[in-house]
Design a protein around this nucleic acid. Sequence first.
DNA 1: CATCGATGTTTATTTGAAGCAACGTATAAC
DNA 2: GTTATACGTTGCTTCAAATAAACATCGATG
Lengths: 113, 113
Amino acid sequence: MANSSRINEAPPAAVAEALKRLGRNIRTARLRRKLRMQDVAERIGASRYTVADIEKGKPGTSMAAYAGALWALGLLDTMNELADPDRDEEGKTLESVRSPKQAPRRRKLDNDF
Amino acid sequence: MANSSRINEAPPAAVAEALKRLGRNIRTARLRRKLRMQDVAERIGASRYTVADIEKGKPGTSMAAYAGALWALGLLDTMNELADPDRDEEGKTLESVRSPKQAPRRRKLDNDF
DNA sequence: CATCGATGTTTATTTGAAGCAACGTATAAC
DNA sequence: GTTATACGTTGCTTCAAATAAACATCGATG
């Protein structure tokens, strides 16, 4: 990354916690399968240091690295439900009759929410 | 070569597809909530270009950016099941009686798996 | 309890992610 | 149809993600 964005430098607590839990889950799955960090690294074409970052829940590490780790462990299918529109009940309620391809226009000094 | 890892440059097809689906899901959720890319960007402290990358499923974009987008849309809880050890039936089967904190040692020329 | 591989940590280096500005296109609101 | 805004895309700059080497520590296994 470059100009350091807040989401990577200091993510909201809920996000940071979610990443740490994901990292712990990935580590648990790896150890259950008796694989070394390097084994996972080789399967996804990365270094063992990147796998270590994933298991620490490092925010700035790439999405592909995380997804690749899941893939290497045979857990990629657990990603399919992520933000699944069919399960997004709140979203379905909010949706209007039509499905716009763009967000609605805002007035210049629209300071809502 | 420093920053270029295969997982970011050319992820496995299954991983690339999972990321694109996730990006589409996030876009659907955003539009249902009638938010602009910039609205989501401001909530997570990033630029609209990063949100655009997320919705395209760009592999190299940070995990925190993806998780932050889910958080901004109230969908972070869908991440809790990711690689959940309790649901990892294959992992539980593979696990030995004890839970080692390290992967087993390998011989030097161990070329298995 | 000794060995040696797995993992943590540091440092240095390189490359690409992220920001930003600018321009063009698409679309929704009128 | 007109217009203001959302979105797509490109080129450029900046700085952190990723790598690798080196060393320390942890821990599985005999």
